[in-house]
Protein backbone atom coordinates (compact mmCIF):
# COMPACT_ATOMS: atom_id res chain seq x y z
CA UNK A 1 0.00 0.00 0.00
CA UNK A 2 1.41 3.39 -1.00
CA UNK A 3 0.69 6.57 0.87
CA UNK A 4 0.41 9.76 -1.21
CA UNK A 5 2.31 12.65 0.40
CA UNK A 6 0.27 15.85 0.39
CA UNK A 7 2.24 18.03 2.83
CA UNK A 8 5.52 19.69 1.95
CA UNK A 9 8.49 17.81 3.35
CA UNK A 10 12.24 17.79 2.92
CA UNK A 11 12.23 13.98 3.18
CA UNK A 12 12.19 13.14 -0.53
CA UNK A 13 9.30 10.82 -1.47
CA UNK A 14 9.16 8.34 -4.34
CA UNK A 15 7.62 9.63 -7.59
CA UNK A 16 5.00 7.24 -8.98
CA UNK A 17 3.93 7.95 -12.58
CA UNK A 18 0.26 8.11 -13.53
CA UNK A 19 1.11 6.92 -17.05
CA UNK A 20 3.30 3.99 -18.03
CA UNK A 21 6.95 5.01 -18.48
CA UNK A 22 8.82 3.87 -21.58
CA UNK A 23 10.63 0.58 -20.94
CA UNK A 24 14.31 1.33 -21.33
CA UNK A 25 14.94 -2.03 -23.03
CA UNK A 26 12.24 -1.17 -25.60
CA UNK A 27 13.30 2.47 -26.16
CA UNK A 28 13.92 3.71 -29.69
CA UNK A 29 17.29 5.10 -30.70
CA UNK A 30 15.84 8.62 -30.49
CA UNK A 31 14.57 7.97 -26.95
CA UNK A 32 17.91 6.48 -25.87
CA UNK A 33 19.71 9.53 -27.27
CA UNK A 34 17.37 11.87 -25.35
CA UNK A 35 17.98 9.88 -22.15
CA UNK A 36 21.74 10.52 -22.30
CA UNK A 37 21.27 13.88 -20.56
CA UNK A 38 18.90 14.01 -17.58
CA UNK A 39 17.71 16.96 -15.47
CA UNK A 40 20.34 17.58 -12.76
CA UNK A 41 22.35 14.75 -14.36
CA UNK A 42 20.60 12.21 -12.14
CA UNK A 43 20.00 8.55 -12.97
CA UNK A 44 17.47 7.43 -15.61
CA UNK A 45 14.41 7.42 -13.38
CA UNK A 46 10.74 6.62 -13.94
CA UNK A 47 10.30 10.37 -14.40
CA UNK A 48 12.66 10.68 -17.36
CA UNK A 49 11.39 7.39 -18.78
CA UNK A 50 7.90 8.92 -18.65
CA UNK A 51 9.14 12.04 -20.43
CA UNK A 52 10.81 9.78 -23.01
CA UNK A 53 7.35 9.32 -24.55
CA UNK A 54 8.16 12.73 -26.10
CA UNK A 55 11.81 12.27 -27.01
CA UNK A 56 12.05 15.47 -29.04
CA UNK A 57 10.98 17.64 -26.09
CA UNK A 58 13.08 15.71 -23.58
CA UNK A 59 16.18 16.16 -25.72
CA UNK A 60 15.91 19.95 -25.69
CA UNK A 61 14.52 20.38 -22.19
CA UNK A 62 17.16 18.55 -20.12
CA UNK A 63 20.13 20.69 -21.32
CA UNK A 64 18.05 23.84 -20.84
CA UNK A 65 17.15 22.74 -17.29
CA UNK A 66 20.78 22.09 -16.41
CA UNK A 67 21.94 25.39 -17.91
CA UNK A 68 19.39 27.45 -15.99
CA UNK A 69 20.03 25.71 -12.68
CA UNK A 70 23.78 25.09 -12.83
CA UNK A 71 25.58 27.50 -15.19
CA UNK A 72 28.25 29.53 -13.43
CA UNK A 73 27.95 33.21 -12.54
CA UNK A 74 24.89 35.23 -11.62
CA UNK A 75 22.68 34.01 -8.81
CA UNK A 76 24.00 31.38 -6.41
CA UNK A 77 22.73 27.81 -6.77
CA UNK A 78 21.22 28.07 -3.33
CA UNK A 79 19.08 31.06 -4.30
CA UNK A 80 18.05 29.53 -7.64
CA UNK A 81 16.72 26.63 -5.56
CA UNK A 82 14.65 29.15 -3.58
CA UNK A 83 12.95 30.19 -6.84
CA UNK A 84 12.28 26.54 -7.63
CA UNK A 85 10.80 25.96 -4.18
CA UNK A 86 8.50 29.01 -4.44
CA UNK A 87 7.10 27.87 -7.80
CA UNK A 88 6.64 24.33 -6.49
CA UNK A 89 4.76 25.59 -3.43
CA UNK A 90 2.41 27.71 -5.58
CA UNK A 91 1.71 24.74 -7.85
CA UNK A 92 1.69 22.33 -4.90
CA UNK A 93 4.24 20.05 -6.51
CA UNK A 94 5.20 18.23 -3.32
CA UNK A 95 7.87 16.14 -5.03
CA UNK A 96 9.62 19.12 -6.68
CA UNK A 97 9.44 21.14 -3.45
CA UNK A 98 10.95 18.25 -1.52
CA UNK A 99 13.87 17.64 -3.89
CA UNK A 100 14.76 21.32 -4.12
CA UNK A 101 14.30 22.03 -0.41
CA UNK A 102 16.71 19.18 0.28
CA UNK A 103 19.20 20.67 -2.20
CA UNK A 104 18.74 24.15 -0.73
CA UNK A 105 19.41 22.87 2.78
CA UNK A 106 22.57 21.07 1.64
CA UNK A 107 23.88 24.10 -0.26
CA UNK A 108 23.01 26.48 2.57
CA UNK A 109 24.25 23.99 5.16
CA UNK A 110 21.11 24.91 7.06
CA UNK A 111 17.52 23.76 7.17
CA UNK A 112 16.32 27.01 8.74
CA UNK A 113 14.84 28.66 5.63
CA UNK A 114 13.06 25.58 4.30
CA UNK A 115 11.81 24.65 7.79
CA UNK A 116 10.22 28.10 8.01
CA UNK A 117 8.81 27.96 4.46
CA UNK A 118 7.20 24.57 4.97
CA UNK A 119 5.69 25.53 8.33
CA UNK A 120 4.66 29.15 7.63
CA UNK A 121 4.43 29.41 3.84
CA UNK A 122 4.42 32.95 2.49
CA UNK A 123 4.45 34.32 6.09
CA UNK A 124 7.79 32.68 6.82
CA UNK A 125 10.21 34.91 8.71
CA UNK A 126 13.17 34.80 6.30
CA UNK A 127 16.08 37.19 5.88
CA UNK A 128 15.14 40.34 3.89
CA UNK A 129 17.01 39.02 0.83
CA UNK A 130 15.45 35.55 1.04
CA UNK A 131 12.05 37.12 1.59
CA UNK A 132 12.38 39.37 -1.49
CA UNK A 133 13.47 36.39 -3.61
CA UNK A 134 10.71 34.09 -2.37
CA UNK A 135 8.02 36.76 -2.68
CA UNK A 136 9.01 37.60 -6.26
CA UNK A 137 9.17 33.93 -7.28
CA UNK A 138 5.84 33.16 -5.64
CA UNK A 139 4.10 36.04 -7.42
CA UNK A 140 5.70 35.19 -10.78
CA UNK A 141 4.40 31.63 -10.43
CA UNK A 142 0.76 32.61 -10.06
CA UNK A 143 -1.53 32.57 -13.12
CA UNK A 144 -1.53 35.25 -14.40
CA UNK A 145 1.80 36.32 -12.89
CA UNK A 146 1.28 38.88 -10.08
CA UNK A 147 4.73 40.49 -10.00
CA UNK A 148 4.86 44.27 -10.17
CA UNK A 149 7.34 47.13 -10.31
CA UNK A 150 7.75 47.20 -6.54
CA UNK A 151 8.92 43.58 -6.50
CA UNK A 152 11.79 44.42 -8.86
CA UNK A 153 12.62 47.52 -6.82
CA UNK A 154 12.65 45.46 -3.64
CA UNK A 155 14.99 42.89 -5.20
CA UNK A 156 17.38 45.65 -6.24
CA UNK A 157 17.14 47.38 -2.85
CA UNK A 158 18.01 44.15 -1.06
CA UNK A 159 21.19 43.94 -3.10
CA UNK A 160 20.38 41.67 -6.03
CA UNK A 161 22.16 42.53 -9.27
CA UNK A 162 20.26 42.40 -12.55
CA UNK A 163 22.23 39.25 -13.46
CA UNK A 164 20.88 37.62 -10.30
CA UNK A 165 17.36 38.84 -11.01
CA UNK A 166 17.51 37.33 -14.50
CA UNK A 167 18.60 33.98 -13.04
CA UNK A 168 15.75 34.16 -10.55
CA UNK A 169 13.25 34.78 -13.36
CA UNK A 170 14.67 31.84 -15.31
CA UNK A 171 14.81 29.34 -12.44
CA UNK A 172 11.34 30.25 -11.18
CA UNK A 173 9.82 30.07 -14.67
CA UNK A 174 11.56 26.77 -15.34
CA UNK A 175 9.69 25.28 -12.40
CA UNK A 176 6.43 26.54 -13.84
CA UNK A 177 7.28 23.98 -16.53
CA UNK A 178 8.72 21.28 -14.25
CA UNK A 179 5.73 21.37 -11.90
CA UNK A 180 3.34 20.86 -14.84
CA UNK A 181 5.19 17.63 -15.59
CA UNK A 182 6.00 16.25 -12.15
CA UNK A 183 2.78 17.18 -10.34
CA UNK A 184 0.47 16.43 -13.28
CA UNK A 185 2.03 13.17 -14.46
CA UNK A 186 2.69 11.50 -11.11
CA UNK A 187 2.17 11.22 -7.36
CA UNK A 188 4.69 11.64 -4.53
CA UNK A 189 4.38 8.50 -2.45
CA UNK A 190 5.90 6.85 0.59
CA UNK A 191 5.85 3.09 0.09
CA UNK A 192 4.54 1.27 3.15
CA UNK A 193 7.46 0.02 5.18
CA UNK A 194 9.82 2.31 3.25
CA UNK A 195 12.35 4.45 5.02
Amino acid sequence: MNHIIRKFTRRVPVWKPRVKPVKQEEATSEQLEALKITPSNTKVSDYVLTLAHDAESLAVRSPLFNSIMYDKGGMSREERELGAIAASMVNHCVYCASIHADRHAKLAKSTEATDKLFSDGSKANLTPRQNAIFRFARKLSETPPETDAQDITTLRETGLTDNEILDLILSTSLFGWANRLMHVLGDPIRPEGGS
Binding site: S57, L168, W177, L181
Partner: peptide, 21 residues
Protein backbone atom coordinates in the same frame (compact mmCIF):
# COMPACT_ATOMS: atom_id res chain seq x y z
CA UNK B 1 -0.65 12.97 -22.50
CA UNK B 2 3.11 13.48 -22.05
CA UNK B 3 3.30 15.53 -25.26
CA UNK B 4 0.40 17.67 -24.07
CA UNK B 5 2.00 18.29 -20.68
CA UNK B 6 5.28 19.32 -22.33
CA UNK B 7 3.37 21.87 -24.40
CA UNK B 8 1.45 23.23 -21.40
CA UNK B 9 4.60 23.33 -19.27
CA UNK B 10 6.69 25.07 -21.88
CA UNK B 11 4.11 27.82 -22.42
CA UNK B 12 3.94 28.32 -18.63
CA UNK B 13 7.72 28.76 -18.64
CA UNK B 14 7.83 31.08 -21.63
CA UNK B 15 5.02 33.38 -20.46
CA UNK B 16 6.77 33.86 -17.11
CA UNK B 17 10.19 34.55 -18.61
CA UNK B 18 8.62 37.20 -20.85
CA UNK B 19 6.68 38.68 -17.94
CA UNK B 20 9.80 38.84 -15.76
CA UNK B 21 11.91 40.43 -18.51
Amino acid sequence: IVKLCQLIGFIAYQTRVVSGL
